[in-house]
Design a protein around this nucleic acid. Sequence first.
DNA 1: GATGAATGAGCCTTCATTCAT
DNA 2: CATGAATGAAGGCTCATTCAT
Lengths: 202, 202, 202, 202
Amino acid sequence: MVHSSNSRRADRTEQQRENILRAGRAVFAERGPRATMADIAAAAGVSQGLAYRYFASKEEIYRYLADQAVQAGAAELAGVQDVPATAGERLFLLVTKMVEMRAADPETFRLLDHVLHGAADDLRASAQARRADFTGLLRTLIVEGQRDGEVAAGDPDQLAAAIAAMLEGLARLAADSERTAFPDAEIVLRMLRPPATADGAA
Amino acid sequence: MVHSSNSRRADRTEQQRENILRAGRAVFAERGPRATMADIAAAAGVSQGLAYRYFASKEEIYRYLADQAVQAGAAELAGVQDVPATAGERLFLLVTKMVEMRAADPETFRLLDHVLHGAADDLRASAQARRADFTGLLRTLIVEGQRDGEVAAGDPDQLAAAIAAMLEGLARLAADSERTAFPDAEIVLRMLRPPATADGAA
Amino acid sequence: MVHSSNSRRADRTEQQRENILRAGRAVFAERGPRATMADIAAAAGVSQGLAYRYFASKEEIYRYLADQAVQAGAAELAGVQDVPATAGERLFLLVTKMVEMRAADPETFRLLDHVLHGAADDLRASAQARRADFTGLLRTLIVEGQRDGEVAAGDPDQLAAAIAAMLEGLARLAADSERTAFPDAEIVLRMLRPPATADGAA
Amino acid sequence: MVHSSNSRRADRTEQQRENILRAGRAVFAERGPRATMADIAAAAGVSQGLAYRYFASKEEIYRYLADQAVQAGAAELAGVQDVPATAGERLFLLVTKMVEMRAADPETFRLLDHVLHGAADDLRASAQARRADFTGLLRTLIVEGQRDGEVAAGDPDQLAAAIAAMLEGLARLAADSERTAFPDAEIVLRMLRPPATADGAA
DNA sequence: GATGAATGAGCCTTCATTCAT
DNA sequence: CATGAATGAAGGCTCATTCAT
């Protein structure tokens, strides 16, 4: 049947596309944007020419993957906002999620790392904008949390920056070595949690 | 006087060398090893060929700067060990120093970052070895500090990894943007300080 | 048929390889190792980059061709040794062959000439070793031939050197100009043939 | 006295010039035209810049030396022509001289060799023209000598070419290795001497 | 006159991209 | 759809030449 054959062909096509993207993600995560097209093709097990049937350029692949990575991080933001909880609780939840994502999917965050510091200016700009969004959200939650006494005192900008920096550092840590101990989110949260009050009310 | 003229020429030469190294540091810090010789020459305000009077290759420049960066980090380690103080105090001192160095000289640490994750295997290995030394020292101080109650509870490996990751993240943060709030060391130390005791002695 | 198509492609590939080698031989023979990759590519009618699909470097091409040339000369040596004839006859046969080879394939011997006097130390050493082998064989045959009265008197080392020098000179002569008269081997052999005896026995 | 001081200065200048030429000759003879200006300056013990006070370019040095070498060979030609002797005698004298010159001054002839086969077209052309002159003279003497029975039979062009080739080969031989046996001119002359007559008149 | 720093053109090589099959 | 040959634009490096001192 024509339709089925078309579908099957389309499936095949889609699979190749995914195949190349998967290879690209692995290779770009490891080597950054200086990974060659030959690397990617080899990792995908296809010819170099074929990649150009699916993507217009190496940069397109990179951009696609970069966007994916940026959005992977962003998805959580929205999710957390909707949770019915106090600012502090949402803050802790958000940070915990972020830490855990970096432990779970180092490849994506290693890639994001390259994007944040790489040469493609517009990509970097957009990734940095996302990060700024994220930091802004952190800041907001921190300010609110501090008002309620759920979050430790301290300059909110510095606290937000500390968390953001920590997350980048963890992404690298995860990427580097499977072997290293990866810190629990709880350790990170110590930077935000208020000290136990003297009367131990908590 | 002959000597004076020679000295002046030698000075000039030495200045150019420094000039090229400075340019190289800036450019490599920003772009990593894929920075172009043309980039470096332009940043130094000299022709591309001239750099080769002072350095045999682009790699030589990179290695020289990489070594410098690796050693800049290492210098502090020794210093802190000699301070007559408890393990906890030395730990806090060390971390404080490290945080402040990253705030003060982001370029060097950005470069170190590239070295730690770049393609030059032997350089990376040596930089990672240094980092492992550092993490090991952190761990030792943490264990001792915990014994004395100066350091918060928690898996020492995770705590050490958290600090190491934080420092990498801060290096990147500092490099990215002069404008961002840079966290005080005290915020980082929250991950290590024990909670206030219930009797509120403090 | 798949196989046929593969074969055809493989043939094409092999042809290009040969094409580039042919061009390289011509260009290196004329200009020596300082011939440009651009020269070779132009002579082969291909882009400069393409040569690197077939050879890792300019030097690899040069070495390949140099080896070929060295062995082309050496092949004759073995052949002549097996001929069942007197030393003198084999000597004359060998020299005749060598002269004729230089007339027939000036390019190869011009290249050999560059190898013998060029900058690539190991290549030159191996080519000179071959030449020493050859000169040694000449000397042996001369000594034996003199014992039998088939070869003219004279210091065997000098005679061998004279023949070796003559062959180099002929290689150059042939390379320079197709137009020049090329001496018959018989003229060269005059340096080796004994004078007619007074009784005209010969 | 002004004049004397000028002379002394001029002497000094002339010495430097000679110094650089001597260095250039040695270096060009060994490496050919690909010898670098740095090589020459180092061999002369002067700075690279100084060479440009005496010569406009590396090529000028090379040309000057090449001309010298070409003329060194040519000088003999004229001399031999004036000798009151038969054609055959003059031929043998000429060839003997040429062989001995190559043994005595390999450097010059090694250089000449580079000129004859190098890339500078006009130089090569002029050197080849000289060589053609020489070969022409040889031919003339051969033809005359054959008429008188002083020179062996054979195509004069081939005989002349054989001698010319031999001389090139000897130049290389001399250049290559001090150690090798260098053939007496008498061996070379065997190609030209008539066979002993049956009546043993000689 | 002499030095050595400085320049810029050219060569080898790599790699993203295109094209014939 | 798929392959791999082919191209051309950089990038690293060398070296003849010029220039300030």
